[in-house]
Structure formats: C-alpha cells, structure tokens
Amino acid sequence: MHYFIWDLDPVLASFKFLRIHWYGAIFSLALLSNYLFMHWVYLRELDTAEDVDRLLWYCIGGAVIGARLAHVLFYNPSFYYSEPLKIFAIWEGGLASHGGVFGVLISLYIYQRKAPFDYCWILDRAAIAGAFSGFLVRTGNFLNSEIAGTATDVPWAVVFKRLDDIPRHPVQLYEAVSYLAISLFLLYLYNKSTTKNLNGRLTAWFLILIFSTRFFLEFYKNSLINLDSDYWISAGQILSIPFILTGIYLLYRAHKPA
C-alpha cells in the first residue's frame, strides 16, 4: 500500500541571522487570531478594544510559563533537575498543553481584576479563541513532524520521513480537526446566546470537549514519558482528567437553578 509521505523542511524561511520555522509562524498566527477575535468581542460587547493589548500579553505569559513548567514537572523532571538551566531553553522545545491552559486560567484571573467584567465573562470568550488556537498549534505540529502517532496500516496513514519510514496515524490532524469543530461549536453557542452572562457554560464545554478529545487521542500517540511505566494511561491522559471533571462541575453549576 502506498502511504502519504510527509517530509516538509521545518524551516519556512532563512535569512542571514534569522530562521523562521513553520511552527513559529503558525504559533504567531494563533496569537494573531486570538487578538483579532477578542478585539471583535470587546467592540461588540464593551464598545471599546482599548484593553485587548494587555489581555494578549497576559495570555502569552500565562500560556508559555504554564506550558513550560508542566513539561518540566510532569514529562521529564529528572533531566531538568540535573540540568536546571535547561528549564529556560524553551527554544529547544518542550511545552505541555495542559500547563498552558492552566497558566492562561491563572493569568486571566489576574487580568480581570482590573477589568469591568467578572472572571466567567472573560473565560467564556477566551474559550472560543483557545480552541481555535489549538487547531492552529496542532497543524503546526503536523508541519513540523512532531507528536508522532502510533504505527498503523489505515489508508490515510502518513510516513513522517524526518522520523522514520513507519506509516503512522496523523494524530496531529485528528486533534486539529477536533479542536476546529469545538471552536465552531463554542462560537455557535456564543452567537446563539441572548444574554451576555454565559455563566461559565462555554468554559465548561471547552474543558470537557478539549480534554476528552485529548484523552481519547492519546491512545493513538507515541506517548511522551509516562508517569509510571506500569500505568495503562499516559501522563497526558492523567493530567486531562482534572480538567474534564472541572468542566462537568462548571456545566452543572451553570445550569443549576438559582
């Protein structure tokens, strides 16, 4: 059987003192999409987008710091304990999405303390942008031949030549398409709402759907470092469970009669 061969150079463009990688370009596009969407939301609901720049910097800081710390603490702690300066070498890779989400949740809480709305208001709007960012980031992982899927002989298997000659599940695209569908579903709920007070419903659906998807698709990934080799689930799946449970609680609370 002939499989799709993927062998894209991870460098998008190279200049004398600068190399632009596909992943970096896609990550920048994700930040830009977040900015434009929240700019639209602010103008639509608050009649001003003056504070969106501050929001963007809070989200960038929370996402990067949270994602890096989660990778260090849960995926390869022994290496970073022996090489602590490597913790700061984020250009070498190593960002965990669970930590990124947690970092953004904290940074948005700090941000909204000086804003004219409550925590749930900003979380519900940011959830839509966050799901779309997940779509773009996983697309970047595919372009970069990262997050390898397990070996398979399905007709749509992909051979990532930069890794090996084994046909694998294009699990990055599975996630990307799932996150795009989730972002469209959240946008539908947002536009359908007749009130500005969504009471955390979009945040709840974001946590449930994103991390349930992540939990299921982990079975099709060549896992990173498991917390324990005897476990039947990966570190990524274990870390997904608290987010799913939190989402279920928030959904129950949002629909609970006052």
Rank of each mutant, 00 (worst) to 15 (best):
E175M: 05
L186V: 03
Y3M: 10
E45Y: 15
G130D: 11
R168P: 03
R125L: 03
T203Q: 01
V64R: 04
I233N: 15
H39T: 07
K114E: 06
Q112P: 01
D9V: 15
H2W: 06
D153L: 08
I210Q: 09
D153K: 04
S223M: 15
V159S: 01
H255G: 12
F243K: 00
D118V: 00
F4L: 15
T139A: 13
I147F: 14
A148N: 09
L32V: 15
D153N: 13
L12I: 00
Y23M: 14
F216C: 03
A89C: 07
L32T: 11
A127W: 03
Y111N: 04
E45H: 14
F219C: 02
A131C: 10
S107Y: 02
L163P: 05
D153H: 04
E45N: 02
P242K: 05
V64G: 12
I241W: 09
K256M: 06
F160G: 00
Y190C: 04
I106K: 06
W156I: 14
P84L: 11
Y23P: 03
A25G: 05
L95F: 00
A49R: 14
Y190E: 02
H169A: 10
D118N: 09
A258C: 03
W91E: 11
I20L: 15
F88C: 03
R19I: 12
V159G: 02
R138V: 05
I248V: 11
E45S: 06
L227P: 11
L46P: 04
F160T: 01
E83Q: 15
W22C: 07
V158M: 05
V137C: 00
A13V: 03
A67W: 01
Q112S: 03
T152F: 00
P167V: 01
S183T: 10
L202H: 01
S193M: 14
Q112C: 13
S78P: 05
I110R: 04
W121M: 07
W156H: 10
M1C: 11
I147C: 03
N226T: 12
L18A: 06
P84N: 06
A70E: 07
G134K: 07
K196L: 14
R54S: 14
K114P: 07
R138W: 11
D51C: 09
Y188C: 06
M1A: 09
A89E: 02
S240F: 05
T150G: 04
I5Y: 02
P167F: 08
T139H: 07
G140W: 03
A30L: 09
N34G: 08
E146R: 09
M1P: 07
